[in-house]
C-alpha cells in the first residue's frame, strides 16, 4: 500500500449551537461522500468524522476548535468542502 499522507487542519465552529444534530449530520454526510478518512479531535478526544453519534459526543459549541485529520485519495477535496461548510455555518438560517 502507498504511504498515507495525513493532512491536518484546525477549524473553528462559528454557528451558534456548535455540532448539534443537523450540523453533525451534514458533517457526517459530507465526509461519507468522499473516498477519504477523516477524524475530528477536540480536547484530546478523537472521533470519526463519518459518525453522527460520535460527532455529537464531542460536545463542540460555538468557538470550539476542531482538529481535522484527513487522508486518502480525495482528502483535499473533502477538507475543502468541510471547511466551506463550517465557514457557511452549516447553512442553518437561525445560526448565522
Amino acid at each position: 500500500m502507498a504511504e498515507e499522507k495525513v493532512i491536518e487542519k484546525e477549524v473553528t465552529l462559528l454557528n451558534r449551537y456548535g455540532l448539534h444534530v443537523r450540523p453533525a449530520g451534514l458533517f457526517a454526510k459530507t465526509a461519507s461522500r468522499y473516498d477519504a478518512d477523516i477524524t475530528v479531535e477536540k480536547d484530546g478526544v478523537e472521533v470519526s468524522g463519518k459518525s453522527i453519534m460520535a460527532l455529537m459526543t464531542l460536545e463542540a459549541v460555538s468557538g470550539s476548535v476542531l482538529k481535522l485529520k484527513v487522508s486518502g485519495p480525495e482528502a483535499e477535496d473533502l477538507l475543502e468542502e468541510i471547511e466551506a461548510l463550517v465557514a457557511r455555518k452549516f447553512d442553518i438560517p437561525d445560526e448565522q
Partner: peptide
Amino acid sequence: ACDSTRNYME
C-alpha cells in the same frame, strides 16, 4: 453510552 447521546441511535 456517552452522556450526550445516551438512548439515541442512528
